[in-house]
Design a protein around this nucleic acid. Structure first.
Length: 421
RNA sequence: GUGAGUGUAGCUCAGUCAGGUAGAGCGCCGGAUUGUGGUUCCGGUGGUCGUGGGUUCGAACCCCAUCACUCACCCCA
């Protein structure tokens, strides 16, 4: 029979790895809550049309990377490839978009059918924050400061903030023409990918890694030269706020995002420690998305970060999370000991909620049970054998020090454990 | 989607070049006078060599296909 394995690009997070995930998630929550972002929980499946309309019908994500399928009633559905579209849809559907400024955050799995490699899997986890109803550059700055504080909380260093402004959609559209004209004039110098993108997403050609193209790209008209006056002002205001708060950034006129809904501010936090997948967090402003999804024009901005990449970065910098070991391991030898041991343990759990107490299951003598107690990482063994059952006592043996084991009555045990905790 | 590399015991790997029906370390289980772990010593358990075909008297090894992982392109968080 064929061995069953996980679907390609879908990873299991094993018990040994979950503590570091929990540590990361907790740290993110603390920072987000300190800026008063509130959690929103969203469906993993949405109608396909939502993504086609928001991310953009011409983007790679929508064209070749979505997990799309037909429901039993022939509805076209998609496993979400990102979180923003569903978030906007939910706030719109429930009328929160118009209920004054909103700050929300979400976390969970996203799905993209890409070839897996380092820092890129088909099911991956993002934490994102979105803010609605705020027009000025202040919210752009706040989002970036949230990110910066997250890096600080996690002890992540050596990453770069890249910043750009795409201008208004209109300005971006006319720039697109300008760029296509320029590149078409040099069509012969373009590589295969770039020629394809000339039709689909010409701005991304600016992002090309092909060294042969760098000269051509350097000579291209600059996006920043052609953005509208209001956007330029907005961008300047953002830079002032970042400067005033000591956030370092690099203006990168070639930074364009792969999702169509962005306008004005776009940013990306990148590292050079993770190979080809250098972006750990990215976002920007998307003032026209709410309209595209069918609502009234509402200014909006947000970011999303890739948790696998952040974890990989934390491992690079040598951080280690501690796995959850029991504090107490209860050794029980003989049927009578098991019997009264279970009842004793249940009483302890009543008295001390959350007590990390591991009961030995599966029999065996004292020797083998102690081996397992040691291996479990527990600090103390609680020992129950025939003698203890007969005398209504328990032996407590410290496993991590040379201290002698000692005897307490079963009535005293809860108090003694509280003392040891 | 394109290209390259890898796949042998629960884990890390040797064996592949020059085909002769599988090895090490760690782990796991047990023992060292039977109610005490962590060190040491002794013994044991362990793999249809990713999967399916082919070549051959004979394949972990050569060939083809396929799946998965890794890396790069691409894409993006």
């Amino acid at each position: 029979m064929e061995k069953l394995q996980a679907v390609r690009g879908m990873h299991d997070t094993l018990p040994g790895e979950t503590p570091k995930w929990q540590l990361l998630e907790d740290a993110l929550q603390v920072v987000l809550h300190s800026y008063c972002y509130r959690e929103i929980r969203l469906p993993i499946i949405e109608k396909t049309e939502l993504f086609a309309r928001s991310i953009g019908a011409g983007t790679d994500i929508v064209n070749k990377e979505m997990y799309t399928f037909q429901d039993r009633n022939d509805e076209l559905l998609t496993l979400r490839p990102e979180g923003t579209a569903g978030c906007v849809r939910a706030l719109l559907q429930h009328g929160l978009i118009y209920a004054g400024p909103q700050r929300v955050w979400y976390q969970g799995p996203m799905f993209r059918h890409e070839r897996p490699q380092q820092g890129r899997q088909r099911q991956f986890y993002q934490v994102g924050a979105e803010a609605f109803g705020m027009e000025g550059a202040e919210i752009d700055a706040e989002l970036i400061l949230v990110c910066a504080r997250i890096w600080g909380a996690l002890g992540i260093e050596g990453i770069t903030l890249q910043l750009n402004s795409l201008g208004s959609h209109r300005a971006r559209h006319s720039y697109r023409k300008l760029l296509v004209d320029y590149l078409s004039a040099h069509r012969g110098e373009l590589d295969e990918d770039s020629i394809r993108r000339l039709e689909t997403n010409p701005l991304r050609i600016l992002d090309s890694k092909n060294p042969a193209l760098q000269g051509l790209i350097d000579g291209a008209p600059s996006l920043l030269d052609s953005i509208d006056a209001e956007s330029a002002e907005h961008f300047a205001a953002l830079q002032d706020l970042l400067d005033a708060n000591g956030v370092e950034y690099k203006i990168n006129p070639r930074l364009v995002r792969g999702l169509d809904y962005y306008n004005r501010t776009v940013f990306e936090w990148t590292t050079d420690k993770l190979g080809a997948q250098g972006a750990i967090c990215a976002g920007g402003r998307y003032d026209d998305l709410v309209t595209q999804i069918g609502g009234r024009a509402t200014p909006a901005a947000g970011f999303a970060m890739g948790l696998e990449r952040i974890l990989a970065l934390l491992e690079c910098s040598g951080a280690e999370a501690v796995a959850g070991a029991p504090r107490f391991y209860q050794v029980m030898v003989g049927a009578d000991a098991v019997n009264s041991g279970f009842r004793l343990a249940e009483r302890l759990r009543d008295d001390i909620p959350g007590l990390p107490l591991l009961l030995h299951c599966g029999g065996g003598g004292f020797k083998s049970q102690f081996k397992k107690a040691d291996k479990s990482g527990a600090e103390y063994a609680l020992i129950l054998g025939a003698d203890e059952v007969a005398s209504n006592t328990v032996l407590i043996k410290p496993l991590r020090t040379d201290a002698e084991q000692y005897k307490v009555t079963q009535e005293q045990l809860a108090a003694e454990i509280k003392r040891l905790l």
